[in-house]
């Protein structure tokens, strides 16, 4: 029983930590620019494949860690290009942004699919920083995942500090709260949105780097699942609320792991939990637990 509880708690924390990173960026972009970026899950997926492709390249033998740097830079740039080429020209129309980012996600998926590694599942375990596990109350705590959870918390805190204390962070919040007024403060809102999308892509990339080496590349379509769950997380936490995204991520994480561990045949439908959350929240509290579009 204690093992089951440990199992539920640890995996819930793990899942929550991953979704906190992914959903935070997703929520940020929505909060600041009202941009529903449906290619966010694809950033996560693509980072994994960028790492894989580089690891498969002889050039990087002995330079495995360089792949991480490159992958994160590339995904950040792709985030930037998404904004400049697709979102910015269309940002007055929500529908257009949704469609065009959906299209991009689909395109990235197809690009990965036709790549030589696109049709199989892959491990990128070479990038695991920590091996092994420690038994706690008869439950094996995997070191790599502890690293992920710690890093996720650190990144969330740094990010909160960045948003609240840094000059760029203040400008980001200003744009989020009143874009026109921010323009009057000499802030180039487009530039701020560009940074925001780049930061969110970077966060998705970091999530991929921290999680996927201990998990696996499940195929080019894996981004959609993460997108849907991030969506559930931000709906739960409140679109644009950063605290909400983090809290929502852990709530979703624990709910899934609870279903997996304690509900008979739960694993068969644990994946429906986020969808159920979306529907329930929209019915009873559409603004989410923490409400508000603006970044506080």
């Amino acid at each position: 029983m204690i093992v089951d509880i440990m199992n539920m708690l640890f995996n819930g924390t793990l899942t929550g930590a991953v979704y906190a990173l992914i959903a935070m960026g997703y929520s940020l972009v929505y909060g600041v620019g009202g941009i529903m970026n449906l290619s966010h899950g694809a950033y996560f997926m693509l980072t994994g494949y960028l790492l894989l492709w580089m690891l498969q390249t002889p050039f990087f033998i002995g330079l495995e860690w360089l792949t991480v740097v490159f992958a994160l830079i590339i995904i950040t740039v792709i985030g930037g290009l998404t904004f400049l080429l697709l979102v910015k020209p269309l940002q007055d129309s929500h529908v257009a942004v949704v469609i065009v980012t959906f299209g991009l996600a689909f395109l990235l998926e197809q690009v990965v699919l036709i790549s030589p590694s696109g049709t199989e599942v892959w491990s990128i375990g070479q990038l695991r920083l920590f091996q092994g596990y420690t038994m706690v109350f008869g439950y094996p705590i995997v070191h790599q995942y502890v690293f992920l959870i710690v890093m996720s918390i650190v990144i969330v805190l740094l990010f909160a500090l960045f948003i609240n204390k840094s000059k760029l962070g203040k400008s980001i919040r200003a744009v989020s709260q009143d874009r026109e007024a921010a323009g009057l403060m000499g802030i180039n809102a487009s530039r701020i949105l560009l940074y925001t999308v780049m930061i969110s892509a970077l966060l998705a990339g970091l999530a991929a780097f921290l999680y996927l080496p201990g998990a696996s590349l499940d195929g080019p379509s894996m981004g959609w699942g993460y997108l849907l769950n991030s969506f559930a997380v931000v709906i739960l936490g409140g679109m644009g609320s950063l605290i909400g995204s983090v809290a929502g991520a852990f709530i979703v994480g624990y709910t899934i792991s609870f279903t997996n561990v304690f509900v008979p045949y739960g694993p068969s439908w644990a994946h429906l939990v986020p969808i159920i959350i979306i529907i329930v929240i929209l019915l009873i509290r559409p603004q989410g637990l923490f409400g508000k579009k603006e970044l506080r």
Binding site: N11, T15, V18, Y211, N260
Partner: peptide, 22 residues
């Protein structure tokens, strides 16, 4: 006896492996 949905993630599988161990 663990049936799972095919969209599972590595974290889900970790839960299941631990259930099998338990």
């Amino acid at each position: 006896n663990i049936p799972y949905d095919v969209t599972l993630t590595a974290a889900d599988m970790l839960t299941h492996v631990n259930t099998l161990m338990a």
